[in-house]
Design a protein around this nucleic acid. Structure first.
Lengths: 226, 226
DNA sequence: CGGAATCCTCTTCGATACTG
DNA sequence: CAGTATCGAAGAGGATTCCG
């Protein structure tokens, strides 16, 4: 006698193990990538669709419901003006930052293989900066950066040997940098030197010194494959 | 028209993002749990089946092939006596240790909810010890432990503020401890005090001092939920 | 236009049976 | 012991439609 799976009974590994339990919640297809998007900041439904090329709208809706039920994500209605519903991580969901960054640190080893069809989104590389931040190179600095990549704006503050990231910022930036996603990737991966990109115009320095830009890309450089 | 399962190009998220790339390789169902098993030590095919209750044998075989192709896992044929093929992590696969442990650290929050049907395996909790190791409590110590849990043997060496784990060891243990998986879990989670378990006989101290046992379970205690 | 629900097809999973 | 083969069930992907 087969028991029919009715909607709502979630599949589980059925193991009393912390790793398996975590994967029960976030191990399904797309789920950790949704979390990745939300680690950069709150997002509207259509922002998520945009940031997750290939996901079906039905699947996104389903995953968001599951994440809400697991209390990893909550939806919030922004007050007017600009009324909108956004999804954001709960405190519990924030706890996934370290695992996701750790996964990204390893995954970087596989980015050497470029594939032409691959999508790129500025936010992914801002998150990579968080993963590859090199504390040793940040010592003594105190700089607020504003990055404008393909029109999207991000703020990075390096201070007291720590880096903080966000899309809004109270602080007036010391450095404002504008570029496109291609140049951004090449500068982080070390394939293009920031100085050269500034000269060619691929990187535009609106506020600040060239030297601060070079320092930025040194602090957040992707580790070179061996 | 039916096509054998070679023809299918592997599904990919198609994103030039380190997290997505990592999930292309290890994001499918069961894959990270296979890695979890191998993080404790090399395993034979049937060991893996045993340690992954619920996996289908076809799926295990398929996943191992994928992991081999991705060069995260390799198979090795042990020399006689005891001829057998084992699977083990490559150096690249070893790189998944941090992400898996990080996931487990978070997943621990969800273990408060006990479910009766959940399987338990000693190795999972030895891996949890690696995830929850508290450096501050290990300072100054130099102790080699042998843990025998439901007949499986593990070695833990705490030295110079670091802990190393394995199933074989060159060093003669200072402490030998035997128990069953239930007691092991309860002692790690803090629900049973090691002293009480020693008294009741659930925990057997074959070599060493009671005080070393209490120290062990303090160093590797699961963080208490808030 | 944002935020989904529905329908349909295709792929993957899970369980069992079978083999060198 | 170490896997293949098979097949029904569940999940994913895509297009379309619906609602406020």
């Amino acid at each position: 006698m087969k028991v029919k799976y009715h909607a709502g009974v979630k599949r589980s590994y059925g193991q009393y193990c912390a790793v398996a339990r975590a994967l029960d919640l976030v191990g399904e297809r797309w789920t950790l990538l949704i979390v990745r998007e939300l680690l950069v900041g709150p997002r509207r439904y259509t922002d998520l669709l945009e940031g997750l090329p290939g996901i079906g709208t039905n699947l996104l809706a389903l995953r968001l419901r599951e994440l809400e039920k697991a209390e990893l994500v909550q939806r919030r209605t922004l007050p007017p003006p600009g009324v909108a519903t956004v999804y954001e991580l709960t405190e519990l969901g924030e706890g996934l930052r370290e695992p996701v960054l750790a996964l990204g640190r390893r995954g970087g080893r596989f980015l050497a293989e470029r594939r032409d069809r691959d999508e790129r989104r500025p936010a992914w590389y801002v998150l990579s900066m968080e993963a590859t931040f090199d504390v040793a190179l940040a010592a003594g600095g105190d700089v607020a950066y504003e990055l404008r990549v393909d029109g999207e704006v991000f703020h990075v503050e390096v201070r007291d040997g720590t880096a903080s990231f966000g899309q809004s910022s109270r602080r007036v930036p010391d450095v404002i940098l504008a570029t496109d996603v291609d140049t951004f990737v090449l500068a982080l991966s070390g394939e293009v030197r920031p100085g050269a990109a500034l000269t060619s115009g691929d990187l535009e320095l609106l506020v600040g010194e060239r030297e601060q830009v070079e320092r930025l890309f040194r602090m957040f450089a992707w580790p070179r494959a061996a």
